[in-house]
C-alpha cells in the first residue's frame, strides 16, 4: 500500500515538475499587458488573445513559423534521402573500411558546433548561402546524418534477412532490394529517424543565428532568442510565440512517444 502511494506521489512529482514551468508561459500568453505588469503579477489570465495577434503581426511570427516549417521539412527529407541508402549499405553489404566510416560518423555527432562554425560560415558565404534558408539546411543535413544512419542501420539489422536473400537470388541488385523489399518493412524505423531529425531542425539555434540575419529568413528559435520590444521586453508576445513554437512539438511527442523512446534508446544501446 505504501509502495503504491509512493509511486503515485513520484509520478505526480515528475509530471508536475516537467509541465508546470511551461504552463506559466502558457498562462502568460493569454493574459493582457496589465495583468502581466500588475504588482504582484496575476496568476490567472483573462483569456485575451491580444499577445497572439501582436506576435503574429508586429513581431514576424508568421515569417518565423513559415521558415521553420520549410527548413525542418527539407532537412528531414534530404537527411532521410541520404541516410537510408547509406544505412542499408552499412547494415547489409560488405564495404571495405566500414568500421572507420562508422567511427567517423560517431565522431561527427560529437562535434561542438563552434569547431565548424567559422568555416561553415565562410563556405556558405562563398556559395551565396548566407541569409538563405537552404544555407542552414545543408549543415543541418550533415549534422543529423550520423544519428539518422545510426538509427536506421540498427533497425535494418533487426529485419530478417531471408526475404532480402530470396530477392537477391532472384536477381535483384542491392538498390532494387532496398526499395522493393527492405523499405516497406522498415517504415517504423524511418518514421523514428524522421521525428528525431525534425525535432533537431525545428529547435536548432546556433547555426541559424549565424547564417540567418534577416527576420524574413529567420527560424523560430532565432526569432524567439532575439525577441525585442521598442522600450521594454515584450514578455507576453514572447510567451505567445513560444507557445506557437512548442505546440507542434507537443503534438508530435503525444502522438509519437513510443517511437521517440525506442529511437533514442536504439541509437544508444544497440548501436
Amino acid at each position: 500500500m505504501t509502495r503504491r502511494v509512493l509511486l503515485a506521489l513520484s509520478i505526480l512529482a515528475t509530471v508536475g515538475l516537467s509541465l508546470l514551468p511551461f504552463l506559466w508561459f502558457v498562462l502568460t500568453s493569454f493574459k493582457s499587458q496589465g495583468e502581466i505588469e500588475a504588482a504582484p503579477p496575476g496568476w490567472w489570465p483573462s483569456g485575451s488573445l491580444e499577445f497572439y495577434r501582436a506576435a503574429l503581426f508586429d513581431h514576424h511570427l508568421f515569417d518565423y513559423v513559415l521558415n521553420s516549417v520549410v527548413v525542418a521539412g527539407s532537412t528531414t527529407l534530404l537527411a532521410l534521402l541520404f541516410a537510408i541508402p547509406a544505412a542499408y549499405a552499412l547494415a547489409r553489404l560488405t564495404i571495405p573500411g566500414k568500421q572507420s566510416i562508422l567511427a567517423v560518423l560517431l565522431c561527427v555527432s560529437m562535434f561542438p558546433q563552434m569547431a565548424i562554425a567559422g568555416p561553415v560560415w565562410r563556405l556558405l558565404d562563398s556559395l551565396g548561402g548566407l541569409n538563405q534558408r537552404w544555407g542552414v539546411v545543408l549543415p543541418y543535413v550533415a549534422l543529423t546524418l550520423p544519428l539518422a544512419i545510426w538509427i536506421l542501420a540498427s533497425f535494418f539489422k533487426e529485419l530478417p534477412p531471408e526475404l532480402e536473400d530470396a530477392a537477391r537470388v532472384d536477381g535483384c541488385g542491392p538498390w532494387a532490394t532496398l526499395f522493393r523489399i527492405t523499405l516497406p518493412l522498415a517504415t517504423p524505423g524511418i518514421f523514428t529517424a524522421a521525428i528525431l531529425i525534425l525535432i533537431y531542425a525545428w529547435n536548432e539555434f546556433f547555426f541559424a543565428l549565424l547564417i540567418l540575419t534577416q527576420p524574413e529568413q529567420q527560424t523560430l528559435p532565432v526569432g524567439i532568442a532575439l525577441f525585442q520590444g521598442e522600450f521594454t521586453m515584450p514578455w507576453g508576445e514572447l510567451a505567445a510565440a513560444s507557445v506557437v513554437a512548442t505546440l507542434p512539438l507537443i503534438v508530435v511527442v503525444l502522438l509519437c512517444q513510443r517511437w521517440i523512446v525506442s529511437g533514442l534508446s536504439a541509437g544508444a544501446v544497440k548501436g
Partner: peptide
C-alpha cells in the same frame, strides 16, 4: 512518458526564455 518528454522536445531557446 509523453509528459516527461515535453521538456526534452521544447526548443532550448524557448526553455531559456521561459
Amino acid at each position: 512518458r509523453a509528459a516527461i518528454l515535453i521538456p526534452w522536445a521544447i526548443p532550448t531557446v524557448v526553455a531559456s526564455q521561459l
